[in-house]
C-alpha cells in the first residue's frame, strides 16, 4: 500500500473515532445550547431596559422568568407564580455582551445580599487576593473530579456569580458552563473581573484568609 493511502486511512480512522466519541459527550451539547441561547439573545432587538437572563435559564419555556434574587435574600424557585415574582435584576443593557453578564456595581449589590461568588481563576492568579467570601472553583477542579465539596456549598436553586481576572479571560465562562451542566440554572458572570472589583474598592481578602 502506498504512503498516501496509509495517511488517508489513518485520517479516516481518526475522524470516525472523533465523531463517534463526540456523539457521547453531553457537555458539548450543553455548551452548544448555551451558546445558541446567547447568540439568540444577542441577536434580539433590545430597545427597552430588559433584565439579564441568567446563563442556563430557558427563556423560551419561561419567558416571564425573573431572577430569584430579591432584597430579602430569599430565593424564589422558578415555579413561583408570576404575580408574586420579585423584581428582576436590572443592569445596564449592553448589546455587545450576553445578557447573563452583570456589572461590578450590580455584582456588589448581590454580594451585599449574600449571594455566593465563585472565583474561577487559577492559584497563581489568585495570589493577588479574591473577593471576600468567594469560593474557589476552577476548571482544574472539574478535570480532577475535585468539585464535589465546593458544589456542596452551592445550592442549585440559588443564583451564582462567577468571575475571573477580567479582560480576555475565559475561565468564568468555562466554569459557568460546567455549573449549568450540573444543574445550576441561575448563573451570572461578572465579566469585568476581579481587577475591576478591586479597583472599585469593594471588599477583598487574601487567598487562604477565609
Amino acid at each position: 500500500m502506498r504512503f498516501v493511502g496509509k495517511v488517508a486511512i489513518i485520517l479516516v480512522v481518526v475522524l470516525v473515532a472523533a465523531v463517534a466519541h463526540s456523539m457521547q459527550w453531553p457537555i458539548t451539547r450543553d455548551i452548544a445550547d448555551a451558546l445558541q441561547r446567547s447568540q439568540a439573545r444577542r441577536g434580539a432587538e433590545g430597545g427597552a431596559v430588559t433584565p439579564p437572563t441568567p446563563l442556563g435559564a430557558d427563556s423560551q419555556t419561561n419567558p416571564s422568568a425573573t431572577s430569584p434574587i430579591e432584597g430579602s435574600g430569599e430565593p424564589q424557585g422558578q415555579g413561583d407564580p408570576p404575580d408574586v415574582a420579585p423584581p428582576p435584576i436590572v443592569d445596564e443593557p449592553d448589546s455587545d455582551l450576553p445578557d447573563y453578564y452583570i456589572s461590578v456595581a450590580r455584582a456588589y449589590e448581590l454580594w451585599e445580599e449574600g449571594m455566593p461568588f465563585v472565583d474561577a481563576r487559577t492559584d497563581v492568579e489568585r495570589e493577588v487576593g479574591t473577593i471576600e467570601g468567594a469560593l474557589h472553583l476552577e476548571t482544574l477542579h472539574f478535570v480532577n473530579r475535585m468539585e464535589g465539596p465546593i458544589l456542596a456549598q452551592l445550592e442549585p436553586a440559588f443564583p451564582v456569580i462567577v468571575f475571573c481576572a477580567g479582560g480576555e479571560c475565559d475561565a468564568s465562562e468555562n466554569v459557568a458552563q460546567r455549573l449549568i451542566g450540573r444543574g445550576y440554572t441561575e448563573v451570572y458572570i461578572m465579566h469585568e473581573g476581579f481587577g475591576a472589583w478591586e479597583a472599585a474598592g469593594h471588599p477583598t481578602e487574601p487567598v487562604g484568609g477565609g
Binding site: 481518526v14 472523533a18 466519541h21 452548544a32 447568540q39
Partner: peptide
C-alpha cells in the same frame, strides 16, 4: 465560538485520537 463551534468540538476529539492512534 459561535460560527466555528463545530470545528472546536471536532478538533477537541480529533486531535487526541490522532495522537493516540499515531
Amino acid at each position: 465560538p459561535i460560527d466555528h463551534e463545530h470545528l472546536v468540538v471536532v478538533s477537541s476529539f480529533a486531535v487526541p485520537w490522532a495522537e493516540a492512534i499515531c
